[in-house]
């Protein structure tokens, strides 16, 4: 589903060069839950942005569903993103003037779907995420966990092939993190969506089929887990008490 070849990203700040990514070669299959871990500054976000086509690589290829997105024009890319990709942000990024249901319906509005249809679909996904009671609330009237559930609903409402998430639970407490993660994984599994998630928390990453570990812009580990390993890791994660706020 996702394929990269010799992916490289160099930032030039003044005279200094920062190699954020050096020669990344990856292959992520359809329906895979792929977690990217690594220390802060290791290049996780840069890689995710590159995969999602939010940023152009300095060199190399990113292919999604067989299409090379690195050579697409900005409008073609927007089109492609609208039809195939979803995105979940760390800080939710809901539009403050819109209600929850309107926020979820936003991608459908951008796609030009009629109002009735998009509100209907948005409500359905909201209730699947367990926040239908907040449908008419503005983001400022919701807790972080609720906002992120709305954000997840917004990513799923267009039924994308791939969903990218950059530290989606980074702003949430441990308890909420587990609930939100569970909700996300359930949706992904149900739709067979390819899911790429950045996290700096190895215990969260352990819930994925594939765990890619970055260090200084290089892949130092590309681990595939068996279903039983995943089951075990998830069971451990969700059974742990979270009084301490630590995993």
């Amino acid at each position: 589903m996702i394929y990269t070849e010799a992916l490289r990203k160099v930032y030039v700040i003044g005279k200094e060069k920062v190699v954020a990514l050096a020669n990344i070669n990856l292959q992520i299959a359809q329906g895979e839950v792929c977690c990217i871990v690594g220390q802060s500054g290791s290049g996780k976000s840069t890689l995710l942005n590159m995969l999602a086509g939010l940023e152009k690589p300095t060199r190399g290829i990113v292919e999604i569903a067989g299409e090379n997105i690195t050579t697409m024009s900005e409008n073609t890319l927007a089109n492609f993103r609208r039809q195939n990709l979803g995105f979940i942000f760390q800080s939710y990024n809901l539009l403050p003037q819109l209600t929850a249901v309107e926020n979820v319906a936003l991608p459908l509005m951008i796609s030009g779907r009629p109002k009735r249809e998009r509100l209907h679909r948005a409500k359905k996904v909201l209730s699947q995420m367990g926040v239908e009671s907040r449908a008419t609330h503005k983001p400022s009237e919701m807790s972080g966990g609720q906002q992120q559930r709305v954000g997840i609903a917004r990513a799923f409402v267009t039924k994308p092939k791939v969903i990218f998430a950059d530290e989606p639970t980074g702003n949430l407490d441990t308890h909420t993190t587990k609930q939100v993660l569970m909700a996300m994984l359930a949706r992904v599994k149900k739709h067979g969506t390819t899911f790429v998630m950045v996290t700096h928390e190895p215990k969260l990453a352990a819930c994925g089929n594939r765990i890619i570990t970055l260090l200084d812009g290089k892949v130092i580990e590309n681990k595939i887990q068996t279903e039983t390993e995943i089951e075990e890791n998830r069971r451990i994660l969700f059974s742990e008490t979270s009084e301490t706020g630590e995993f």
Binding site: N75, A78, N79, R81, R82, F87, L95
Partner: peptide, 14 residues
Amino acid sequence: REIGVMKVLGCSLG
């Protein structure tokens, strides 16, 4: 930020 979000969601430049 809002414009950035719209773009991520696939809003065309037009």
